[in-house]
Amino acid sequence: MTTAALIATLVKIAVFFGITISLAAVSTLFERKISAWIQQRYGPNRVGPWGVLQPLADGLKFIFKEEVAPAGANRLLFRLAPAMAAAPAFMTVAVVPFTFPLILDGTRIPMAIADIDIGVLFFMAMGSLAVYGIMLGGWASNNKYSLLGGLRSSAQMISYELAMMVSVITVLTLAGSMNLTRIFEAQIPLWNIAVFPVGTIAFGIFLIAAFAETNRHPFDLAECETELVGGFHTEYSSMKFALFFLGEYSAMVMMSGLITTFFLGGPSLFGLVNGIEDPWIKVLAGLGVFLAKVCFFLFLFIWVRWTIPRFRWDQLMHLGWKLLLPLSLANLLLAGTLVATGVL
């Protein structure tokens, strides 16, 4: 690797990672703001103008809180679990293309930290890892309610992962590549969500599964005050607890990024941004479009959470295994047939 490429990678890591973390922090603020608006309240508005410093205040508060570990907890796993819950979301940042590749003097610098040809596989692997943090967190706490929360969420994540991955394979079939940059580039003429019916159905399934994968409402059975006291994180306090939350919100940001890349053409906007001549402006405009789409999905995540009542446990499993999985398989079959016969 040349020095220039190394520097480019380091800059990309700093910028994209920073964007993800700050989006996660901002979405905690908006989670509280939007929940307040939906309930005709103001939400946090005391720390800084309009409450913008609230995430910072929250973070400081978490740092100063006492760390408590329950008696009989598995020390190693108890400490490891929060990191394991947050890490997969952070690692996924590596493969998401945030904007168009930068073309300088004929060299193409892809705008994903690692523009690997197995990006989708990497995302699938990380998605499967996410369940371990939650499961181990629940188990290591030596608390039956935490364990139940962990069990529920692992069962839920495993069952929804299937439908999600099958719908991703549908996208692969349409794009013909596993590289995420190529996937969005293939959508510049027509976004996958508009490829009726296969793209639209795959989008719907992916969206529902994304809610389940990130443990968000209406699929947030891993945490439940009334049945489980808290959930897998009942016994966690201070920064460990904060890490679980940071992980959850980063996973939300990453899921929004992936939905955008898979179905909404990533940074492209009806060919407008694509046509810009100046390479830097094109990259920045692409980044803006991409982030706008991500923010829309973050808003959707929060909006849905404060609107819909949650599912019952058996309804959740029913939806995952008996509805989404067969539907996604049929959709994949249809997509395969259409692509093979040259219709799409």
């Binding site: 939007i34 608006w37 939906i38 309930q39 005709q40 309240r41 103001y42 909006w303 849905v304 404060w306 609107t307 819909i308």
Partner: peptide, 21 residues
Amino acid sequence: EILKGLAFTFRIMFRKRVTRQ
């Protein structure tokens, strides 16, 4: 029904707030 619910909560977001500051 979900869409109806979402439309409803979206409308509420712009209503007057009732909290006393």
